[in-house]
């Protein structure tokens, strides 16, 4: 009688045998004490392993693990300043546009008195405009071979465009950073 191989017995216990092999192996086991005792030795190993209790950690490892993780890099401080800087710009923008808007509304609705005067605001605006004219007319001292540099409206627009792009990028980074660190 040909005895079962170790491989066959192992595969049988691991449920890795095809149904046909399984039945013929069981037939052999039913009439062979030697192979049955081999099987029982292995079954005992299976049983011992499954009886091994779970050990418990003596302390929580999570804080140590979190500390040792690579920290998400912080944004450069310049970008962190973007938020207050934007607030200042927004206030400035409001200060510039509100008198215009007021004037527009007041002129389109004759007969309605607002009951308050924006004169100080207009004065401020005028001051700002004067500043812009001064800046616009400012010429860098001419150097030999260099005709000087003129601030034009185009330069203003280009400057505004650059600011807007910086605004979008800066805000995007801030937003991403906030989502990352403060769910």
């Amino acid at each position: 009688m040909k005895h079962l191989t170790d491989d066959a017995i192992n595969e049988y216990l691991d449920h890795e045998l095809a149904e046909f092999d399984r039945s013929s192996l069981e037939l052999h086991l039913a009439e062979c004490a030697e192979c049955t005792s081999h099987l029982e030795v292995l079954q005992e190993v299976f049983a011992q392993l499954s009886k091994l209790p779970e050990a418990s950690l003596s302390h929580d490892l999570s804080s140590g693990i979190l500390r040792s993780l690579p920290q998400p890099h912080a944004l450069p401080p310049l970008i962190r300043l973007a938020a207050p800087f934007q607030a200042v710009l927004a206030l400035l923008g409001l200060a510039i546009t509100i008198p215009y808007a007021y004037e527009k509304i007041a002129s389109s609705m004759t007969g309605i008195e607002f009951g308050f005067s924006l004169q100080p605001w207009f004065d401020l605006q005028m001051m700002g405009l004067n500043w812009w004219i001064v800046i616009k007319d400012f010429h860098l001292p001419a150097l030999p071979g260099f005709t000087g540099f003129e601030f034009s409206d185009q330069i203003l627009y280009l400057g505004l465009l650059a600011c807007s792009i910086a605004w979008f990028i800066g805000n995007g980074m801030l937003l991403k950073d906030t989502r990352r660190n403060h769910p």
């Binding site: 418990s56 929580d60 979190l66 998400p72």
Partner: peptide, 23 residues
């Protein structure tokens, strides 16, 4: 959430699975 870099979420995963890994 941990993939997005949320430390807290990864910490919770550690709490859930540390005993399993330790074993």
């Amino acid at each position: 959430r941990a993939r997005r870099g949320e430390m807290e979420a990864f910490g919770e995963l550690v709490l859930r699975f540390q005993n399993r890994v330790f074993n």
